[in-house]
Simulated scan of single mutants.
Amino acid sequence: MTDTPSPNHFDLHAATWDADPVKQARALAVGKGIQSQVPLSPRMGALEYGCGTGLLSFALQPQLGHITLADSSEGMLAVLNDKIAAKRITNMRASKLDLLTDPLPPERYELIYSLMTLHHIRDTDALLRSLHALLTPSGYLCVADLDAEDGSFHGQGFDGHNGFDRRDLAAKVESAGFRTPGFTTVFSMTKGEGSAQTAYPVFLMVAQK
């Protein structure tokens, strides 16, 4: 949810974002995937990059220490702050951040994760290098995103990535300094009806610094 082709898209949809049951189910599935592959602990400081309304972080919040939720959409962050206040959560903080244009923040994290964010980032190599720098030694990076698709997920006019080939992304991640990542399929979305229905798998990539 950073470096998007339409900067106001996420602001416009922020208020109704959580009403989509698919987004809710996707976040819970990715959260379970992270819980099964990363030794979460209340001692871990975490960063969610491209957090939106924080659906994934709310799924992980009880098992983590302090969580910084970063996004470039002011609309999403406003909804997120309302949710944090309403639930009286004390270990989550929203932050406006775009790692491709803003200075690297001073904090370092044991865990960084993102959900459906990377395919919006044009310069994935630069972002991966920044995320590597923000992790503590042996810290974990968890990226959930679309497998490579034919462009029909977003449709015409989208200038991000049409998902990712897992081998190509693994090479980028290793080039950024991470150890060899692992991939699992944690969710699948469908669009269209009948014979025109298309499945869009979502992978979870886990890499360690």
Rank of each mutant, 00 (worst) to 15 (best):
H132G: 00
Y140N: 05
S72Y: 04
F203C: 05
M189Q: 14
V79D: 09
P39Q: 11
L69G: 03
R167K: 12
V38C: 05
M92T: 07
F178M: 12
L128W: 01
A19Q: 14
A29E: 05
G50H: 03
F58C: 10
E110H: 05
G31A: 10
P201L: 12
L69P: 02
Y109P: 00
S138I: 03
F203E: 10
K23C: 00
P5A: 01
D145G: 03
K209F: 00
D145Y: 01
P42Y: 12
R167Y: 02
T190I: 07
D20M: 01
M92G: 06
V206C: 13
Q35T: 04
A207G: 04
L135F: 06
L100V: 14
A176D: 06
D71H: 01
D20G: 01
G151P: 04
H154Y: 05
Y200H: 12
L204H: 02
P21G: 04
P62N: 06
A170G: 11
K23T: 00
E48R: 09
A170M: 11
G163W: 10
Q63R: 06
L64E: 02
G75F: 07
L128A: 05
F203A: 08
A70Y: 05
N81K: 15
Y109L: 09
A199S: 15
R93T: 14
F187I: 10
Y113T: 09
T184R: 13
R129S: 07
N91C: 11
A29G: 04
S36Q: 15
P39K: 15
A148T: 13
F10Y: 12
I89E: 01
F187G: 05
Y140C: 08
T68G: 00
L169M: 12
F203D: 11
V38K: 05
A59P: 00
T185P: 02
V79Q: 13
T198G: 01
F158W: 14
A176F: 05
G50D: 07
R129V: 08
C51V: 02
L104F: 06
G31T: 09
L64A: 04
T16A: 04
D125C: 09
P42E: 06
S152R: 13
T16Q: 15
L115T: 11
D147M: 15
S188G: 14
G65C: 07
M44N: 02
T101A: 08
P181D: 09
D145W: 07
K172I: 03
A15Q: 02
A196V: 03
F10H: 10
Q63P: 00
A196D: 15
G45K: 11
H154Q: 15
V173I: 15
R93K: 15
A27D: 03
V38F: 06
E149C: 04
F158T: 11
P62V: 08
D165Q: 13
L60I: 06
L118Q: 02
G45I: 10
K209N: 06
S152C: 13
K87E: 13
G45C: 06
F158Q: 11
E193G: 01
I34Y: 01
H154M: 15
A199P: 00
Y113L: 08
D18R: 07
D159C: 09
I84L: 14
A170D: 11
S41C: 07
G160P: 02
Q156L: 11
L77F: 08
V30N: 04
E149W: 08
D123C: 07
L169Y: 04
